[in-house]
Structures are given as structure tokens and as C-alpha cells.
Amino acid sequence: MSDVSLVGKQLPSAPLEAAGPPYFADGLWQGTVEIMENVQLAQDTFRVRFRCPEIARKILPGQFLMLRMSGCNDPLLGRPFALYDTTQSSSGAADGLDVVYLVIGKFTSRLSQALPGERLDVWGPLGNGFSAMPAEHLIMVAGGIGQTPFLAVAREALELRRYGEPLRRRPRVNQVTLCYGARTQEFLASVEDFQELGVDVRVSTDDGSFGHAGLVTEVLESVLDQSRLRPTILCCGPEPMMAAVARISSDRNIPCEVSLETPMACGVGICFSCVAKVRQPDGRWDYRRTCVEGPVFGGQQIDFS
């Protein structure tokens, strides 16, 4: 295994909307870990925790890792999961990983039943992550399970923790808001984790069982209308929602990054499964791999049609 990490050198320092280089997994660690904790947070929503200092000390908010059940060929392929947050040792060094997941298929069903001590194959960190651009008001827009990449983003933006190797320093953000849309109140997960950091959480639910009854984009519009600071939008969720957020950011000329979730087989750029329509310099789109060119793209880079 290579100990040479290029991850720190490949950070997207370019302005938003610039097409980045491929973020190959040059700092990748692959190994087997033991589950320490696997707890339910909300309906069909769990958090799994395991010790993995090799990835924890390198990973950046918005990057992801691949998980599979160790020694098991059914399910066969790894599945991609965003970093929820790192855990720290008593010395303050990042030594563990939290992943929050929604049960939707064969792997997540199996994982939700896993007990402490069970083993997972894990490889990462993967992808680019959110850029650490200066912002006055960071507005994170999440739909469904799309809140998971934002806890670490918020923690970094509020200068409560630094991530990466070497530790990245991002300019402090004055205000952080999470616009979080869920189906019902039962699916809302880890709202307290955000509130504890000082994040202003604005919830919408489809059925009105909690917060605004309606679309999360309506919550976003009202937050934008009220904000007196220079906003920046980060977005993760279902594609129609991300398309709508990208449109709002474009209409209002606000910088926007979206984190795509596409079906993925390898996570490292070799299978060409996870493509999205990415606008090219000539104005046309091309299918590009979200695992090594994303998963984070400028909102205007993606052709959501």
C-alpha cells in the first residue's frame, strides 16, 4: 500500500465551476475494519462507527469511501458512502469514521443488522469533496439522506475541527444553515448533531409532520430572501431537487456545489458506471465519472436533463 498521499495536493483550489482534474485514489487505504457501533437514528436510518485511522486522518468533508461485508460475495460489490464525520482519539487525532446510511437495498439491509465486531472491507478516501472556498453564509441543502456529507462540512466551516493530511484550514464562515427536506418527521436523522454545532436547521417534510410542509427548495428561497450575508450553496439529495437548487443558484448568481449520488461499482475510476452528464468547455455534455471527477461538481456543470 502506498503511503504517499496526493490527496492533500489535489484539493480543488480553483474557483467554483472550474472543471477539476481527476481525483485519483492515490492516497487510498484498503483494509478490513471491525464495527464498533451500529445504531438506529431514525426510520430506516443508521449510523455505523468503526476505527480506521488510516482513512480518518486523510478524509475531507464531501469525500466518500466504499464499504462491503468482509468475506461475503452476496452482496458482492462495495457501496459508496459519504463521510458523516471522523471520531477522535483522546489525543485529538482522527482515528475513526462514522457513516450514516438509509436502508434501501441488499447491502444496507444487511449492514443494518450487523453487530459490533463484524468486519467490513473499506477503501478510501475517494473523490474530491467540497471545496473550502471562502463564504459568509454557507447554506447546505439536503434531501432524503443527503444531509450526511454536511456535518463535517459544518464542523470545518465553523472552525470546530480540521480535516485532511496535512490538516486543511478553511476560511471561517460567519453563518451556517442546513435546509433539510425529508419525507416525514420519522425520517429526520441527526438534526441535533447539526444544532449542537450551532447550525441553523430549517426542516421541511413532504407531509408537513415537521417544519415547513412542502419542498426544501421553498425553505431555501426563504433563507436566501432573509440572508444579509454573501451566500454559498452546497447541495446533496435527489436529482430533481439538485436540479432545482442549481437553477435557483444560477438565477440568483450564487456559487453552488452539488454532490452527486450515482450507481457506482468500484469508486476508484475503473468501471465507468457512475457517469453523469457534465458540461464540457465546448458547451456540450459528456458522460464523466463522478467517482474521480466528483462527486462534487459546480451546480452549473451538471446537465440534469
Binding site: M1, F24, D26, V268, G269, C271, V292
Partner: peptide, 12 residues
């Protein structure tokens, strides 16, 4: 089709 263009795997 299962190893990209090899550069992807150079760190692995």
C-alpha cells in the same frame, strides 16, 4: 474495462 487506463490504480 476493469482497470481504467491503469493510472487510476497507480496508488492502489
Amino acid at each position: 474495462g476493469t482497470f481504467g487506463y491503469a493510472r487510476e490504480m497507480a496508488g492502489i
